[in-house]
Amino acid sequence: MIPQELPPYGLVAEFDSAQALVVAAEKARDAGYQKMDGYSPFPIEGLMDALGHKANILPLLVLIGGVVGGLIGYSLQYYTSIYSYPLNVGGRPYNSWPMFIPVTFECTILGAALTAVFGMLGLNGLPEPYHPLFHVERFALASRDRFFLAIRAVDPKFDLIQTRKFLESLGAKEVTEVPQ
């Protein structure tokens, strides 16, 4: 069976400095491109703004994770000490809340930390063993010392020839078509 010809994933442009990538992202955003992403070997402050992406919901999720963890921790102790097996220890109240603080605290931290890590991975869609950009040989340098700007074909303004010209005008070292 002959594999069906798929439309390309998009175009990726290579830059040799973080500054060049941010400037290019700002220009592409101002030119009306939306479906694009920058790639760099380290986090670059301001690149998210330059790309026109909005803030993320991770902090809210972590807050919820922490509150849920804490509630689970406290209610576990409350249920076992008051309903399941009330035990008089030295005349202390069944609901000895000061003594329940350490476990509640640890459960809060655990809930929040697990949410932070797995929330980050989940929102980022990782693990993701396959990605079209891995077809581009030079893209391996994105984890070393090169900076890339990718504009996806799904962008309404995307045009294989026009967008390539536009990226080249931004001072890209090389513009490559990325297969699907």
Binding site: M48, N56, L126, P127
Partner: peptide, 12 residues
């Protein structure tokens, strides 16, 4: 796990 240094990923 498929990390590729995306700006959106870095931000999160």
């Amino acid at each position: 796990m498929g990390w590729r240094g995306s700006a959106v990923h870095w931000h999160r």
